[in-house]
């Protein structure tokens, strides 16, 4: 599975930031045509974003465009964006499974035959979207992940948005559960105060502990913290190494059951260990022979 710890939003109407978006180590660079761009600037931003996708080298980052919602400008965004071959598009205001299928149809129609299919990420940011999140998660094979849009969601529910995030606890858990059930990645909402480094660290650790695969960032200065906290910790890596070693040992001895400190290693624990070590190896946190 692709490593997506951090997704950095870059305003689609800001040439300077479109040019430098790939420099901060974000795993996914999201060129934003939606909330960052006021309606009168949508046309100009569409031009800038397509130009950036063709010209700017985003290095190792995946490229992604947050298009406008299906009931606003998505119909104009997609014909401009799809030929520029981003890796992903983000659909905001995903309310039901039909939304995803509609977007997938549009992509089917617009992609060239030789084009690598563009993946879809869906933002769940309405009470209806959250109520239908499991259906959404299972809606289409293009779907790669779910994002939580906490600002819109709390506004629509009428709850107070706080840094502690008690008001989105259930939304977070429903979303990670639906994503896990459908084999998708899940991404937590942005932490909006770019100057509160401590707050970002706390919120990101919470995201990780709740099972999110990664987190969105509104400011390039947030990327490093998010990446570091989503990296497997030294303890996690050491434990995963012990798990795999015990499994190999058990296999060699022809035993069907492996255990660590008297605790049996079941299949989910083994899978998690494999995932952590894969991540650690890809990120260069362990060398090949240390496996």
């Amino acid at each position: 599975m692709d490593i997506r710890r951090s997704m950095l939003y870059v305003p689609g109407n800001n040439p300077g930031m479109l040019q430098t978006g790939g420099l901060f180590g974000a795993d996914v660079v999201v060129l934003d045509l939606e909330d960052a761009v006021a309606p009168p600037e949508k046309d100009a931003a569409r031009d800038l974003v397509s130009r950036a996708l063709r010209v700017v080298d985003y290095g190792r980052a995946e490229t992604c465009v947050r298009i406008n919602s299906l009931d606003t400008y998505a119909g104009q965004d997609l014909p401009a964006i799809v030929p520029c071959r981003p890796d992903l598009v983000i659909l905001p205001k995903a309310n039901c499974a039909a939304d995803i299928r509609r977007l997938a149809q549009l992509l089917d129609r617009l992609e060239e035959p030789d084009q690598k299919p563009i993946g879809i990420m869906a933002i769940i940011e309405s009470p209806q979207g959250l109520a239908e999140v499991y259906d959404i998660a299972r809606s289409h094979k293009r779907l790669a992940g779910l994002l939580l849009g906490a600002e819109d969601y709390t506004a629509m529910v009428g709850s107070l948005r706080t840094k502690a995030g008690g008001e989105i606890a259930v939304a977070r858990s429903l979303l990670t559960n639906a994503a896990a059930a459908a084999g998708l990645q899940s991404f937590d909402a942005v932490f909006t105060d770019a100057n509160d480094e401590d707050g970002l660290s706390k919120d990101t650790l919470l995201s990780k502990h709740l099972g999110f695969s990664g987190k969105a960032a509104v400011n390039p200065r947030q990327v490093k913290t998010i990446n570091e906290l989503f990296n497997p910790s030294a303890e996690e890596i050491a434990f995963a190494q012990r798990v795999l070693k015990a499994l190999r040992q058990a296999e060699k001895e022809g035993s069907g059951v492996a255990s660590i400190s008297g605790k049996m290693i079941d299949a989910p624990v083994a899978r998690r260990a494999g995932r952590i070590l894969h991540l650690a190896k890809t990120l260069g946190l362990v060398k090949g022979e240390e496996e």
């Binding site: 430098t20 420099l23 901060f24 100057n195 400011n219 390039p220 200065r221």
Partner: peptide
């Protein structure tokens, strides 16, 4: 500076 490029 708070400019992310400058900080980078």
């Amino acid at each position: 500076t708070k400019d992310p490029v400058g900080l980078n």
